[in-house]
Amino acid sequence: MKKIKYTARIKRYNPEEDKSYWQDFEVEVEDSLTVLELLMYIKDKIDPTLTFRAFCRSAICGSCAMIINNRAGLACKIQAKDKIKNGVIKIEPLKTLKPVRDLVVDQEPAFDKLKKIKPYLEPDPKVVPDNLKSESLVLPEEFARYDKQTDCILCMACYGQCNALKGDDQYLGPFQLTKVFRFIMDTRDGMDVEERIKLAEDHGIWECVQCQMCFAACPKGISSCDDILELRRIAKDTGEENIATRRAKFWFATVFETGQIDKLNLPAVALNNEKGEKARENLIKEFKQRGIPEDEFGPKPFDGIDKFRNFIKKIEKEL
């Protein structure tokens, strides 16, 4: 087995002194180690005080999520040698949760948010039998709608790298919102869709910035940012009226009309208040000052727009 030398740069936290600091560990180890095995080696051979959370070593228990070279992931699933950059591998705790010691973070705030969205099935009596002898039938195509989302192991890698949380620490979080989507899609669930959406809206779906970091972090390939778009769609389709649903409707309508969004009128339509009107007036003033001709204020349909509209209609219906 080939041995390699490198530096493990680990961000440590000492709660007694409330102090975070970086510590370098020089190692010469087999090149086949996972990041978790590297941490275990350091704890065993160099510094027994190094603290991290881990259990199954098989990417299933979700204990060992941390930030490795600036990206969240499971230490047990990532090969250390793939992450050595200029002789260094950088390991730190998840960013949006407070450290307890070294790489262990306090997961409770994220679990409290999970509890808020009622992450359990409320059986629909029309679908779920009232006796223990028969089972409720879920067709494969019905399960396929949320199969991926059931793979979540609550490791919090997505949560640890979420940008929306950097803007609002009360933001529910990616895996919590994926859970809402998962139960809405479940044919056995009896809770009203509106009620589930309401739970997802309080410091929730409208604060997501669609940065894709949750998808990049997820060891199971779940795309919470896409699930959030689906939740927004469901909110809109169940009659929710707000700045975001007005934007979504106007956006699609103008793209269908012209191929492009009408950015002149978008703020006024979405905001639907004086501020929006003012934004339109200011834009018109700015265009005039810059000598932009009036017919270029908004988008114009391109040649062959009818064919384009037919294309969109067919995609909606047939794809």
């Binding site: 669609q210 896409d226 778009l229 689906e230 927004r232 769609r233 809109k236 975001a244 649903t245 934007r247 979504a248 409707k249 956006w251 699609f252 793209v255 191929g259 492009q260 969004i261 391109f302 040649d303 062959g304 384009f308 294309f311 969109i312 995609i315 909606e316 794809l319």
Partner: peptide, 21 residues
């Protein structure tokens, strides 16, 4: 010239298949 909006992460809120199209 005949290219259209990419969807901007918004048209998904109408129908994500349109974004592929």
């Amino acid at each position: 010239e005949r290219a259209a909006c990419c969807g901007g992460g918004v048209i998904d809120e109408t129908n994500k298949k349109i974004v592929y199209g």
